[in-house]
Write a protein that binds this DNA or RNA. Structure first.
Length: 270
DNA sequence: CTTGAGGGTCGAATATCCTT
DNA sequence: AAGGATATTCGACCCTCAAG
């Protein structure tokens, strides 16, 4: 491994090699980055640079450490060089970060599962897993066969999940998270709020007038609809905003219906 | 067992928005 | 003004499923 010098391992059928050193700094950065990213725990204000600094300063050794960070820890890490400008520290960064971390504690179960970074489990699969198992404990006890019952989960992903939960280091992280108050359960209420969009699959392209991309997604999901990244024959509607990409072309060639934000809201009966 | 299509995930690239 | 974070798109590639 170029970053830590430890031997690397490559998995059957995979193109890339993986460093097996659980403490590899380069790996840690990527893990943490993914954990806090938009589709996962969504900790605003925490990007690559900040993550690197926190890790360099030794304040974050695993993903769970984020939740026990103190204001002093952050200040110390971020202002590592110019120690003499003690009197005017970048307090705003610290404050924003702390409150973002705090809000992220109540993030949904599916986001947390996404955040774990299991091979092959992204937002969509994580959502399926969340609604199927309801909480992390039952998911961690699931066997390969249980997992394969779920649509979209085959032997490879099932194995990856079992393997992830089987690792001691990961179990430890889960424990720490639980202790820090991060242990969400699947909220059934949310999915049964309104099912006017049930059975429909949406893809969003471009910038919508009032809803953000995230907002549109949540809106659709809370009304029972499904959102994916790519347009296909199974897509029910393409929600079109400004500056659309190639998805519009694809939708047209496949005969997928194209609607705007207004129509989306009408469909949902809002 | 092999192959191909349909779906989905991930990472890179790019443009724009915020904060010091 | 500059550095950093966010928002999107795009292409590469992997997984699943079903048909040959």
């Amino acid at each position: 491994c170029p970053a830590c010098g430890q031997p690397v391992e490559h998995f059957e059928g995979e193109v890339a090699w993986y460093c097996v050193n659980a403490a590899c700094p380069a790996q840690l950065v990527r893990n943490v980055e993914h954990f806090v990213s938009r589709g996962a725990m969504d900790i605003v204000g925490m990007g690559t640079k900040i993550v690197e600094k926190l890790i360099e300063a030794g304040k974050v050794k695993d993903v769970a450490d984020i939740f026990t960070l103190s204001r002093a820890d952050i200040l110390e890490s971020v202002t590592k060089k110019d120690r003499k400008t003690e009197k005017e520290p970048p307090g705003k960064i610290a404050d924003n970060l702390l409150s973002a971390i705090n809000t992220s504690k109540s993030q949904s179960l599916s986001r947390l599962i996404t955040a774990l970074g299991i091979h092959g489990v992204g937002e969509v699969s994580a959502g399926d897993l969340a609604s199927h198992f309801g909480n992390l404990d039952s998911l961690s006890k699931a066997g390969v066969d249980d997992l394969q019952q779920i649509e979209g989960i085959g032997p490879n992903i099932a194995e990856a999940i079992v393997d992830w939960f089987g690792r001691k280091a990961n179990q430890k992280v889960l424990e720490k998270l639980k202790k820090a108050g991060v242990n969400p359960t699947f909220n059934v209420q949310r999915s049964t709020l309104n099912d006017s969009l049930a059975g429909l699959a949406f893809v969003v392209t471009g910038t919508l007038p009032t809803l953000s991309r995230e907002g549109a997604k949540e809106f659709i999901e809370s009304n029972g609809g499904k959102v994916t990244d790519s347009v296909s024959k199974k897509t029910s509607y393409l929600v079109l905003g400004e500056n659309p990409g190639s998805k519009l072309e694809k939708a047209r060639s496949l005969g997928v219906k194209v609607i705007g934000e207004e129509e989306l809201k009408k469909l949902a009966g809002a």
